[in-house]
């Protein structure tokens, strides 16, 4: 395959319709960052281990470094910028800030995406389960405890609301 080869893709990113021509070898996170300027998604390892590039594609949280931009043709993609603007992660953002669940912030967009996935899949305020769920997201700064505290708090609130 000629790596200079390009393809046209059409997708929806954070509720906005995007038409673009991309080199076939560009991965999704590089495309989002470099072509669309959505620099909230980060690149930490480029091999699916660190979780810094986690974004939502058609309702599933995926590693933006393990998927080609070309594969996202026709998809609906949401990134941290989208979660923040739509208010979908508002409760989590607040809890992360309160618990200081971020230091340098580099892991944070991916961590929030995984936390959002946990909560939206009905995850409960169970520390071990939360730890398990975010075990694909590396954070060098926090030691994880404050992140678990933040997710636990929001999960607890959600449980209470559901119970009413």
């Amino acid at each position: 395959m000629n790596h200079a080869q390009q393809v046209d893709i059409e997708l929806i990113v954070n509720h906005e319709k995007i038409n673009c021509r991309v080199p076939v070898r560009v991965n999704l996170v590089d495309f989002l960052r470099n072509e669309l300027g959505l620099t909230g998604s980060h690149v930490g390892c480029e091999q699916g281990v660190c979780g810094a590039c986690t974004v939502e594609v058609d309702g599933t949280m995926v590693r933006g470094c393990l998927m080609l931009a070309a594969q996202a043709d026709g998809s609906t993609v949401n990134t941290i910028e989208g979660f923040a603007e739509s208010g979908r992660a508002g409760h989590l953002q607040q809890a992360f800030a309160t618990h200081n669940a971020l230091q340098c912030g580099f892991c944070t967009p991916g961590m929030l995406a995984s936390a959002l996935e946990y909560l939206e899949q009905g995850g409960v305020a169970d520390r071990a389960a939360i730890r398990q769920h975010i075990s694909g997201n590396y954070c060098r700064c926090t030691g994880y405890q404050a992140i678990v505290d933040a997710i636990e708090e929001v999960a607890g609130q959600t449980e209470t609301t559901d119970g009413q």
């Binding site: 960052r33 470099n34 300027g37 959505l38 620099t39 909230g40 998604s41 980060h42 690149v43 990134t79 941290i80 910028e81 923040a84 603007e85 992660a89 953002q93 992360f96 800030a97 309160t98 200081n100 971020l102 912030g105 580099f106 944070t108 967009p109 929030l112």
Partner: peptide
């Protein structure tokens, strides 16, 4: 006092400005 960090909200919204974000 455990004053929260004001920049946290920026980082939590994906609006951090790291070197690789510069174009």
């Amino acid at each position: 006092q455990s004053v929260p960090r004001p920049e946290a909200h920026n980082l939590l919204a994906g609006r951090g400005q790291y070197v690789d974000d510069l174009q």
